[in-house]
Structure formats: C-alpha cells, structure tokens
Simulated scan of single mutants.
Amino acid sequence: MKRRSEHTVWLAVLVLVGLVSVPTPAVADEKAPPGFVALRDVDPTIRQEIRYAGLHNFVGRPVRGYQEPTCLLTRQAALALREAQRMLLRQGYTLKVYDCFRPQRAVNDFVAWAKRVRDDRMKAEFYPEVDKSRLFEDGYIAEKSGHSRGSTVDLTVVRLPVRPQRPYVPGERLRPCFAPVGERFPDNSVDMGTGFDCFDTRAHTDDPRVSATARENRQRLRAAMESAGFTNYPLEWWHYTLRDEPFPDTYFDFPVTRRSVR
C-alpha cells in the first residue's frame, strides 16, 4: 500500500511539472459546448455527404452517434474551412465534406466493429487487401480520434457545376476503393486516386502510384487547406486538422445533430 501511495504522489508531481501528460477523457453530453457550430450556418456553399450517418461506409450501416447527416465543427475550424472554400470557388471547384466532428461513442462503435471478425460486409470496397485483424495495427482505426476534438475534417474537391451523384444501393456489387475512376463507386468528386476511407497505402497523400491527375487534385486540396490553416494527415489524402485547434486535448461525445449546437 505504501509503495502504491508513493507512486501516486510521484506521478502527480510529474504531471504538475509537465513531464507526464494525462489524456483528457471524453466529455459525454447531449449538447455541444460553446464554440461549436453547424457548418451550414457558416458556409452553406460547402457540399456535405456525411457517410457515417448512412449505409455507404466501411461498417455498412449508420454509426452510433450520427443522428443527422450534418457537419458540426468548432467555430474556428468552420471559419477556416470557409476560407479554403473561397479559394477553391475562384478556381471553379467546391469542397465536399464526408465527416466532421465525430463523437467518442462513434469511435467506440468503430472499435467494437473491428473486433467482430465476421462482420466483413464492406471489405470488397474499403479494405480489399487488408485483413480486418490488422486495422488497429496498421493505424486505420484507433481508440481516440482527432475528429472528436471538433477541428478535424474529412473532405474532397468537386468541380463546378456539381454533377448529380447516384445513391449507394445496399447489396450492390462492391468495387475496390483504389480501382480506376469509372470502376469504383461513382463519387462526383474529382479523381483523387482512391475513394474516401480507402484502407490502403494508395490513399497516402503523396503515394507515387496514383495518376498525375490524382496527384494534381490532391495538391489542389492540400494547397487550399494549408492556406486556411489546416494540416494534412499524410496517410489519408482527405484528412485535415486545424493547426491551432481550440480543444487540442479534449474529446467530446455529444451526438451529431443540429440540436447539439442550438
């Protein structure tokens, strides 16, 4: 008992002097804290296709916590995204977001799904060459996500005028996310070399195997996002985090619905 008490005291001292950090647990609530907004209220011109609120995602069903297909972000991230959008609009393009704030309950849902070995219904599209048992080891799924801090966004670029996009039909034949345009699912975005949430090294932002057109499109997105203050996650061309995010150590757990920010 004495040894454990001494250990606790020394740990507290190290935390106080900044030599050891303690992760902040997820803050569970049904309302967002002040500082979160709906992206539509900041920039309604940005397209939204919130994949985890529907069926076309790597788990093949709505993810826990996504009550509406809407993008919620910290106000700082939403305003910065508006700046990136203005740059792209001048070039004849628009942003389209796939995911924004992600509650911790959704991350927990991903973790539980990853442990259900037999649930592989979407493998042929999203992780055709990766065994599901390796999704944690290879860094595709983690128990904490920057999305839960509210300033990370997954997104792509769409050429103007925006072409209609057909909906995903449950049970349709799945194509690999890295198949050429015209063979993989027909997203109305420009060619990025892979689809969104492609668990494959070809989704790395600077992967040399993608076409020159895809590299150019990835660079167009990166230039706009970096000019607005975002940093890319190099293993995913679609993933960006605001450099000066207001909640760098806090993970939130309110549901994705406009009611959360009212």
Rank of each mutant, 00 (worst) to 15 (best):
123 K>S: 12
124 A>L: 12
96 K>Y: 02
154 D>G: 09
251 Y>Q: 07
63 V>M: 09
152 T>L: 05
110 F>H: 12
234 P>L: 14
7 H>M: 14
64 R>L: 06
184 R>P: 07
109 D>E: 02
188 N>A: 12
243 R>Y: 01
230 F>H: 02
31 K>I: 05
258 R>L: 10
73 L>N: 00
191 D>S: 04
16 L>R: 08
216 E>I: 10
159 R>P: 00
210 V>S: 02
151 S>K: 08
41 D>L: 04
4 R>L: 15
162 V>K: 01
190 V>H: 06
232 N>A: 14
237 W>C: 03
20 V>L: 14
191 D>A: 14
2 K>G: 07
181 V>A: 11
64 R>N: 10
69 P>A: 09
106 A>P: 11
221 L>S: 07
201 T>I: 11
74 T>V: 05
3 R>L: 12
239 H>P: 09
28 A>G: 00
149 R>S: 07
249 D>P: 00
181 V>M: 08
120 D>A: 14
118 R>F: 13
108 N>E: 12
253 D>Q: 08
259 R>D: 11
139 G>Q: 10
24 T>V: 14
232 N>Y: 01
30 E>S: 15
222 R>C: 01
247 F>Y: 15
228 A>I: 08
135 L>P: 10
218 R>S: 02
106 A>Y: 01
238 W>I: 11
234 P>F: 07
64 R>E: 08
108 N>V: 09
134 R>D: 15
122 M>P: 02
158 V>K: 02
149 R>C: 06
205 T>N: 10
128 P>D: 02
251 Y>K: 04
43 D>W: 00
186 P>D: 03
14 L>M: 13
120 D>L: 15
134 R>A: 12
111 V>K: 05
213 T>F: 03
211 S>R: 05
27 V>S: 08
156 T>R: 04
193 G>R: 10
153 V>Q: 04
5 S>W: 13
177 C>I: 07
161 P>I: 08
250 T>A: 14
249 D>V: 15
233 Y>D: 11
175 R>N: 06
161 P>A: 04
37 V>T: 06
190 V>T: 04
11 L>C: 09
39 L>T: 00
261 V>G: 07
38 A>L: 15
189 S>Q: 05
35 G>T: 03
48 Q>M: 15
236 E>V: 14
125 E>D: 07
261 V>R: 03
91 Q>N: 06
126 F>E: 03
19 L>Q: 08
244 D>E: 14
87 M>F: 07
189 S>G: 13
130 V>P: 01
44 P>S: 13
62 P>K: 01
134 R>L: 13
128 P>N: 03
